[in-house]
Design a protein around this nucleic acid. Structure first.
Lengths: 242, 242
DNA sequence: TATATAGTATTTATATGATAATATCGCTTT
DNA sequence: AAAGCGATATTATCATATAAATACTATATA
């Protein structure tokens, strides 16, 4: 089962194993998932554990499980991309630029709106947290803090300051994927002083109660990120043609 | 258990019953959810059914379930608003304008971006579907089609034409909530000829390959919707003060 | 009195076996 | 060839038992 076993209970371990296998394409239309009974034998767990794992994956949209039909892998369009596990499995097993692009398109839409709402709402407590994340980014420039974690903290703090529950929840998913995205973007463009400065523009606009400007600054930042990804995709496709 | 029983299996019925009860506030910090054993008795189901329902609700972020601790209701901030069930329960039990506002803020962010991508991608098959939904909206003006369903179909078809998997998946959630939102907005502003015309502007921009314009038109439409909700919220709060 | 420690009880986690419901397949009948 | 029917495999549900985790309690110790 290749269990990582880090605090996960048996059901979660089984779900993790199966989920990874499905997303890797080990099971699919032509290679159906074995029946519950067979799964128990293969993974050496009880039916309870196997069943609960199967239910879990069904809830995530990966499979259906019906009597006499067995366990069927659903088409990828049914997979719930807003589930942190699904996203993590996809991220790890199939780290495609394509998924990263689509994800960034979502951020292009969401983050400027969140910055705008934060500037309108003026929740000082939460705006303070944005400032603290920004300070961490500055420290990261001189190696005093982690550039990845501080960058993530900044973006999440803006979503949290929006006061919008949907945006806040997107934060969790964004967290999962940012850990790949930022690493990728920084590798391509280099971590330089500009990063902190660009983020500061957003923070300043929020503090100055300028919603439109905050949205604009966030939009600029996200567009730049998207451009980086798009040009990488261009390179890949031209490389494939050659 | 008050089971609707419409095609749902036992586990789903239990989850539905419990989910509704939790969101209605029947269980909470001071009224913890009974232990699995008690739930079995109360709902007259086996331990398996109760357990799988509990697992399901835990996956949705409503509860945690740990040994000796029992089943605890999590704070509302943990509830997964991107789960169709959770959203439906909240919508039905607590149809607050506040939630509708936050949801519309999400749409304000997402739908213009989706329209822009649709105009860029030019997937003719999917753009045709937008046109068909628009035709249905026109029919709805003369009573030949359902205004609610056609309106929903239009917005979903744009998300689908974006080619972005995250936007497409948001469609499902939007579907759930639009069934309240559109009814509310139409009740306030009246269903008039302007509705079809405003939607057509988006469609035309997509067909004409004008991404910026498509985004702008979608933004106008969504902003108007949000304004309607915001003014209703104003009225409520001033009515409460009086 | 305060704090640490071991023990106890409660609850979920996992395992096992049995029965019910149901979708699929093949056979029969018309 | 189509429709109906029964056999069969598989999940759904139930029932029960044991293990593991953990909050609470009582006791001992400083």
């Amino acid at each position: 089962m290749n269990r990582a076993n880090r605090g996960m209970n048996l059901t979660q371990q089984v779900a993790d194993t199966l989920g990874n296998a499905i997303i890797n394409g080990k099971y699919g239309a032509h290679n159906p998932v074995p029946s519950e009974a067979v799964l128990c034998e293969q993974l050496q767990v009880s039916r309870s554990a196997a069943r609960e794992a199967v239910k879990s994956l069904a809830a995530k949209g990966l499979i259906t499980s019906r009597a006499r039909q067995g366990i069927r892998v659903l088409p990828e369009s049914e997979w719930n991309l807003f589930d942190a596990d699904v996203l993590r499995w996809m991220r790890d097993s199939n780290p495609s630029l394509e998924l990263l692009r689509e994800f960034t398109e979502l951020r292009v839409a969401v983050e400027p709106e969140a910055a705008m709402l934060a500037a309108q709402l003026q929740d000082h407590e939460k705006i303070t947290l944005i400032g603290q994340a920004l300070d961490r980014m500055k420290d990261a420039e001189t190696g005093l803090d982690d550039p990845l974690e501080s960058d993530i903290a900044f973006h999440l703090s803006i979503l949290n300051a929006s006061g919008n529950r949907f945006f806040m929840q997107l934060g969790r998913i964004i967290d999962t994927t940012l850990r790949v995205s930022i690493r990728f973007t920084n590798r391509r463009t280099g971590v330089n002083a500009g990063v902190h400065a660009d983020h500061k523009k957003i923070y300043d606009a929020i503090v100055d109660r300028q919603p439109e400007l905050a949205a604009k600054q966030a939009s600029n930042l996200m567009s730049a990120t998207l451009s980086t990804i798009l040009s990488a995709l261009e390179e890949n496709s031209s490389a494939n043609k050659a």
